[in-house]
Every structure is written in C-alpha cells, then in structure tokens.
C-alpha cells in the first residue's frame, strides 16, 4: 500500500502500533470511536453558538434570529468518526535543504500521519497548496483513498509561490466539520495574517497543529563571504554577507517564531518547529501515540 519512497520499512515498523490521537474530541460524519465535541446536526441538541464567517448559512437558527436579531447556530452532541486534514505547503520555498529537502521531509511526515490515521480507521484528507493552486482530497478512510494520498504526496514537486492565508481561506470553504488540521509549512508570512486566516477554524473548534519545517541553513544562514540570495518563490535577489547578518538574522528569525508561538498559544493551537535533520516522527508528537 505505502510507497517505499516515502514510507521506508523502518518507518513502517515504527508506525506499526501507532494510533492517531487527536487532542480534542473529534467530529465526524460517521459514527466512530472518538467522542466528538462537534455541535453537529445529529438529533441530540447541545448548545447555540454565534455565527462565524465560513459557517454554513443553512445552519443558522432563523427562529432565534427572528426573536433576538442575532445569528446563532444550533449544535448537537454526536459520536463521530474523526478526520484529519493536512494542509501541505508545496511552494518553491519548501524545495530547500539537502537530503532531504524541506518538502520531502514534510511529505514524509504527512505520509506517516496519513498511514497512522488509516491505521486508526479514521479519515484523512489533504490540501496541497502549490503555485497558487489547491489540490483538495476530502477526508476519506478507504484504502484506495489513502493510497492515492500517499502517491500524491510522493509525486508532488514544490513550485511557485504560496499564499498560505489564501489557502486557509479556501480550505475553510471546504471543511464543514470538526477535525484535526495539520499545517505543514515554513510559515514565511506575517504571523498576524496567518492567524487571521486561521480564526474561522478556531471558532469551528478544529484542532489546529502548525508544523514549521526548516532546513539547518535557514536557521544559521549558509557559510560563505558574499552570497546573492535568490528568493525561491519570487526570484528576487539580495546581496548580503552572511557573516555580517548571521547574528541579527537569528534574532529576527527567533522573533518571527516567537510571534507564531504566542499567537498559537492564544488560539489554542499547537506550534512546533522541526528541522529536516531531526527524526521525522518527532514532527508528529502530539498527534500519534
């Protein structure tokens, strides 16, 4: 089932007894083994909640609106089969690093998670964001679907520029129920923009995991005297001497990561930084057991 190129026998051995373990109760269309906190559309009413952008207008309780002039949605208790959606940033910036590249590392992590989700009889979905385009694979649990996802992950080559907030806005229109959402990217975008795009998911109670994949040279800058840095996404160039910039660059990078971490904490999301030289399964800590 799994393609050896991403899931090596060693990885498969390590994942043999692994189970998908989302942090919160999950929401699913099918009854499953996870208790869902989703206020779904089943028979047992649980609560009202305020309408948030991205919610299906059809779920607005119009009678409440007529009485209170407020848009609220009815939610219901339900047992569900959980789902896991992976948003993989496949922009050109991910095509960086030596053996493996950030993309290859990210794809392998995603493959491990898909394999584990399937092993846990849950559903896995994938949104590939590449060169401004989005390839959407809705969550499903069939072996064929999983195999297709693994092949997709393996064959995708990163290219073009990616607007992560735009990808998230697109995903919000596709994702109507609670699940676990794993964002794998290098997050080279303003943290405020990113979390602004993540807001609807937070309101939906989706379990958010942000995995920032960096190559070691991105943290310490490459060795050398003078380098014409070329932006892998935009092609813009910058002449700089890494020796002069290294210290300050580290500070700037740490500031960027600190901002991401603080916003993630405030939003209840999990944020993790992983380097491509680290074991891939460490990237999935907190998601699989």
């Amino acid at each position: 089932m799994a393609t050896p190129r991403l899931l090596t026998p060693e990885l498969l051995r390590e994942l043999e007894k692994a189970r998908f373990a989302p942090r919160t109760r999950v929401e699913g269309q099918h009854a499953g083994r996870h208790s869902s906190p989703a206020r779904g559309s089943s028979t047992e009413f649980r609560d009202y909640r305020a309408y948030a952008p991205g919610d299906d207008p059809a779920r607005v309780d119009w009678r409440v609106y007529a009485r209170s002039d407020r848009h609220v949605l009815r939610t219901y208790e339900q047992e569900s089969q959980t789902g896991c959606v992976i948003l993989l940033d496949a922009s050109a910036s991910m095509n960086y690093g030596d053996a493996p590249t950030k993309h290859r590392f990210a794809a392998r992590a995603a493959a491990c998670l898909v394999h584990t989700v399937h092993q846990s009889q849950d559903q896995a979905g994938l949104l590939l964001s590449r060169d401004g385009e989005h390839r959407w694979h809705p969550p499903a649990g069939s072996a064929r679907h999983i195999n297709h996802l693994l092949h997709t992950l393996d064959e995708t080559t990163p290219a073009g520029a990616t607007d992560l907030p735009a990808s998230l806005r697109h995903l919000n229109t596709l994702l109507n129920r609670r699940c676990t959402l794993l964002l794998i990217s290098d997050f080279y975008c303003p943290p405020a923009d990113l979390f602004s795009a993540l807001n609807p998911f937070i309101h939906k109670g989706i379990d958010l995991h942000l995995l920032q994949v960096l190559a070691p040279a991105e943290r310490d800058l490459p060795e050398g005297e003078l380098i014409a840095f070329r932006d892998l996404e935009t092609g813009l160039k910058l002449r700089a001497d890494p020796r002069e910039l290294r210290t300050r660059y580290r500070t700037v990078l740490e500031d960027h990561q600190r901002a991401l971490r603080e916003l993630a904490m405030r939003s209840g999301a999990a944020y993790k930084v992983i380097h491509t030289r680290q074991p891939v399964l460490r990237a999935l800590e907190g998601l699989i057991t």
Partner: peptide, 17 residues
C-alpha cells in the same frame, strides 16, 4: 563576486539587512 544561492524566502533576510 557573490555566490548565487537560492533561499526559501527573503522576508526575514530583508528585514535583517
């Protein structure tokens, strides 16, 4: 003469410079 090198993003580099 600078050595050309691709880099994921110049966002942070530009700010540093």
């Amino acid at each position: 003469r600078p050595r050309p090198l691709g880099f994921p993003s110049l966002m942070l580099l530009e700010r540093t410079q």
